[in-house]
Design a binder for these strands. Structure first.
Length: 899
RNA sequence: GGGCGGUUAGCUCAGUGGAAGAGCAUCUGCUUGACGUGCAGAAGGUCAUAGGUUCAAGUCCUAUACCGCCCACCA
């Protein structure tokens, strides 16, 4: 039963998770006798690696779910994973190109070519690619699952779902069909963001703008039909191959006479009209002439529509110049740009260039520069969905924490654009639309939109595209509960209680879940959304692979234990602040866990292997017993309050300070004499020690479940059989004892004063001394007399003389408190000069406080306008300061200082 | 170009309009029989700046500066 001297996390962590899971502690059922509390996990990408952000987010969810489970609710954490359509595509295609997937390809029976050339998804074909996707998924999804277990996440594993499961796919199709039938899904040809590498469209959100890129504004001249030239400026010279107009401002005197005339395209057989457009053209920018390329620019397309211009696309879907590019056809887009510039130079049409700061749109996944491209896609009309979703956050039905994110949400939702949901990919939910062969695919009369293929399938062709990954994510809170079929889970667990996620996906995911939940369930998907902080390194820099400052959670587990990491993450989760993580902070919390471990050793060694009797069956409580029990009530109430408000850092901080400061530093030290002094340990002290420690383990369990369980199991007569099923502590008002706290405060202040004197004067702590305490308070006198033994054990006071009659020794270190003066008469250790300096400093501090209080109380406005309790408090303070100042002055006089 | 945060001790952060706080780190003592992964004590702050509201401002308001993050199709 003897515990080792230090805590070894590895053993406990490897052992307990399996036990908990096997006993079914993570499983929650629909139970009318309990209140529900559900969390749905933000499904990790199936091919992903668990990084620090996951560790944080899942730890926070685990803390909350364990807390509510222990508090008697049917607490269900729904786990699952996301198929991550485009992310998986990118990974697989990259691996195919490097020929890293040959083994997997053989596994699925694909004839792997003998050569070692890069492979693409098109080499495989759709069917083989899907097989490969599933094989990939099977290979990697276990890794995530395992990593969540290592973190201690108490997920209800039998409920695990995958976004491409049959059931969830059915939910996706159902939603698509219903939205289509409601007119909220439509097909349209418009300009979209095109990723030339993945060769698919992207939604606006999947485009990341790289700011302040140094580019150039290139100028060149268009020859005019009637002679002369018009100089334009552009950052993308190659698009001139698709120019179908030159635009000037209608009021621009320089060009007014040219409106309606034509320029001649330098390379292509084309007359380019000169048009007037006040919307497009800012006369002050560049040359005041804009080349118009409707096929490759949003503004130009709008201009083209206003003026009925031709739309000539010059790029294919791979980003190469197409047949419309004349002599440049076949060139890669940037090669074409260089070639066009060279050609213009050659023809003497180049008119120089200027450096130009610009913003480059890049694909979130592939990093490639996104091309605006005119294509046909499926869209969701968002505005009608957004309206009720805005309302539910505005009226407080859904809480955002921190609140500030609501503003971001409103801003986006109120300006919401339609959502492009089709993707030219294979891995994902195929769009449930069939087009009748031989008919116009743009004509809805020849469409079959249904969760099931048409009966005469041979006459139809299904849409080739899949849906945006986030389309299925948006349904997650109810699709995992078997929707559209009815289920007891939906009735019981929906709306879920809590969603924790990163603020980076507020639009991608949170907003869309709210919209879809309201639309299809008629009810919000969750009551609270918690946006966790970004984990940054110790210098406040974002962790990134390229910076090389990434900290791997599993490495930290090996080094410090997962509980230490968990506690660090929770303690660092302050609202609105980044979470700075460093090895040293985790190490600090490892020390905290070791401290708890040793407190347990102490308690255990004093129980002598027997269970302590319950509190109410022992004798009367001592002051310190009443005090620690009272402090416990405060800790329990504050931890609960903090967790209820999702103030994670405050909850962890409270646990930390109660255990270390109150329980270990004061209480354990205080009761030692009761345990050691006489032959038999004091049963009351044992009972209190044990009771409080039992409560500590329960408080600790949501944060650091492994060490909590390991210690729980070491206690004799533990009940119940696991800390996981032990009820979370509740406040017992009867144990709150402000009198005990007040008395302990005074005793502690006196003890601290003696220690300070010793320390400042380098009196060895073990050198016994007589302590003199001068006070006018009779009650304090009694209190101190009763606890003389404590002054002995905690302050090495051989003897304590107390009372109003105590005389101030002239040659003794002294400390002045609000309610007493403490003297430590020790021969040969007094440095009178230093003593004077200290007292003078203290006096000046007190006097400045005194002055401030006096000024306030002399202010008639204050007396008239401030509430009476504030005025009374100020008066009390003034009296205290006056008394302290007087005592200090007297003591100084005794040391020969004239005031 | 808009919007949103943040700025309190060396670091990480609390802080309800009514005496500026904690934990790390630092310094000084301590092999006190749970723990040196520890104990005790100390030092350390014009609460970013400037105005304003108030009897009273770290806290509320307005600007400014710096840092960070979003959103936006300016050639």
């Amino acid at each position: 039963m003897e515990l080792p001297k230090t805590y070894d996390p590895q053993r406990a962590e490897d052992h307990w998770y399996a036990v908990w899971e096997e006993r079914g502690y993570f499983h929650a059922t629909v139970d009318a006798g309990k209140r529900p509390f559900a969390i749905v996990i933000p499904p990790p990408n199936v091919t992903g690696e668990l990084h620090m952000g996951h560790a944080l987010n899942n730890t926070l969810q685990d803390v909350i779910i364990r807390y509510h489970r222990a508090d008697g609710k049917s607490a269900c954490w729904f786990p699952g994973m996301d198929h991550a359509s485009i992310a998986v595509h990118t990974l697989i295609e990259r691996a195919l190109a490097k020929r890293e997937l040959d083994d997997l390809l053989r596994d699925i029976g694909f004839p792997v070519p003998a050569h070692t050339q890069p492979l693409t998804r098109r080499d495989l074909g759709r069917e083989a690619f899907m097989k490969l996707g599933w094989a990939w998924k099977e290979k990697y999804d276990g890794r995530i699952r395992q990593q969540l277990r290592v973190l201690g996440c108490s997920c209800d594993w039998p409920r695990e779902r995958f976004t491409m499961d049959e059931g969830l796919s059915h939910a996706v199709q159902t939603v698509f069909v219903r939205l289509y039938e409601e007119g909220l899904i439509y097909r349209d040809t418009r300009m979209v963001n095109w990723d030339v590498q993945a060769q698919t469209v992207l939604s606006d959100l999947e485009v990341e703008n790289e700011e302040n890129v140094q580019g150039e504004l290139f100028q060149f001249a268009y020859p005019l039909e009637d002679g002369g030239e018009l100089v334009v400026a552009t950052t993308r010279p190659e698009t001139m191959l698709g120019d179908t107009a030159l635009a000037v401002h209608p009021d621009d005197a320089r060009y007014k006479h040219l409106i309606g005339k034509f320029a001649v395209h330098p390379f292509l057989e084309r007359r380019v009209p000169i048009i007037a457009d006040g919307q497009l053209v800012d006369p002050a920018f560049g040359t005041g002439v804009v080349k118009v390329t409707p096929a490759h620019d949003y503004n130009d397309l709008a201009t083209g529509k206003r003026h009925n211009l031709d739309v000539i696309s010059i790029l294919d879907f791979k980003g190469n110049a197409n047949q419309n590019a004349g002599p440049f056809a076949g060139m890669e887009r940037f090669q074409a740009r260089r070639a066009v510039k060279e050609k213009l130079e050659e023809l003497g049409l180049a008119r120089g260039s200027k450096p130009h700061l610009m913003t480059l749109p890049r694909s979130q996944r592939t990093g490639t520069i996104v091309e605006p491209m005119l294509t046909t896609q499926w869209f969701v009309k968002m505005e009608p969905l957004a309206r009720p979703a805005i309302e539910k956050v505005r009226d407080g039905s859904i809480d955002f924490i921190p609140q500030e994110w609501a503003k971001t949400y409103f801003h986006w939702m109120e300006n919401i654009q339609d959502w492009c949901i089709s993707r030219q990919l294979w891995w994902g939910h195929r769009i449930p639309v069939w087009y009748r062969k031989g008919q116009d695919p743009m004509d809805p009369r020849h469409w079959h939109v249904s969760t099931r293929p048409p009966d005469d399938a041979e006459h139809w062709e299904q849409d080739q595209d899949v849906l945006d990954t986030w389309f299925s994510s948006a349904l997650w809170p109810f699709s995992i509960m078997d929707w559209p079929a009815p289920s007891a889970e939906q009735k019981y667990f929906y709306p879920t209680a809590f969603l924790s996620t990163g603020p980076d996906i507020i639009f991608f995911w949170v907003a869309r879940m709210i919209m879809m939940g309201l639309h299809f369930m008629g009810e919000i998907p969750f009551r609270t959304v918690f946006f966790h902080p970004i984990v940054v390194d110790e210098h406040g820099k974002k962790m990134s692979k390229t910076k090389g400052n990434v900290i791997d959670p599993l490495t930290l587990k090996d080094e410090f234990g997962i509980d230490a990491l968990r506690f660090t993450l929770v303690a660092g989760t302050a609202k609105g602040k980044d979470l700075r993580l460093s090895h040293s902070t985790v190490d600090g919390n490892r020390k905290f866990l070791n401290k708890i471990w040793n407190a347990a050793r102490f308690v255990l060694s004093n129980l002598k292997g027997k269970a302590a009797p319950p509190l109410d069956q022992t004798g009367p409580l001592q002051l310190e017993d009443r005090w620690i029990l009272s402090r416990l009530q405060d800790a329990v109430s504050q931890v609960r309050r903090a967790l209820d408000r999702y103030d994670f850092n405050l909850a962890a901080g409270m646990v930390y300070s109660f255990i270390w400061r109150d329980y270990c530093d004061w209480y354990l030290e205080w009761v030692k004499p009761r345990l050691y002094a006489s032959g038999t340990p004091d049963a009351v002290a044992q009972a209190v020690l044990c009771h409080v420690f039992d409560q500590i383990l329960r408080l600790l369990h949501p944060f650091t479940p492994f060490i909590a369980e390991e210690l729980w199991q070491h206690f004799p007569a533990r009940a119940p059989e696991s800390v996981m099923v032990a009820p979370f502590p509740q406040v017992q008002p009867a144990l709150a004892d402000s009198q005990a706290e007040g008395q302990m405060d005074r005793l502690q202040a006196l003890i601290t004063a003696i220690r300070t004197l010793r320390s400042e004067l380098n009196v060895p702590p073990d050198r016994p001394a007589t302590v003199l305490i001068r006070t006018e308070e009779a009650a304090l006198e009694d209190l101190v007399r009763q606890h003389a033994h404590i002054f002995q054990s905690l302050a090495h006071a051989a003897q304590v003389d107390i009372g109003p009659q105590v005389t101030r020794p002239a040659q003794a270190p002294r400390k002045v408190l609000e309610f007493a003066e403490v003297f430590l008469p020790l021969e040969g250790v007094v440095d009178i000069a230093a003593e004077r300096v200290r007292l003078v400093q203290e006096l000046s501090r007190v006097e400045s406080d005194l002055k401030r209080a006096l000024l306030k109380l002399e202010n008639e406005e204050f007396l008239r306008k401030a509430p009476t309790d504030v005025v009374d408090k100020e008066k009390r303070k003034l009296a205290e300061f006056q008394q302290m100042a007087q005592r200090l002055a007297e003591n100084l006089e005794l040391l020969g200082v004239k005031i």
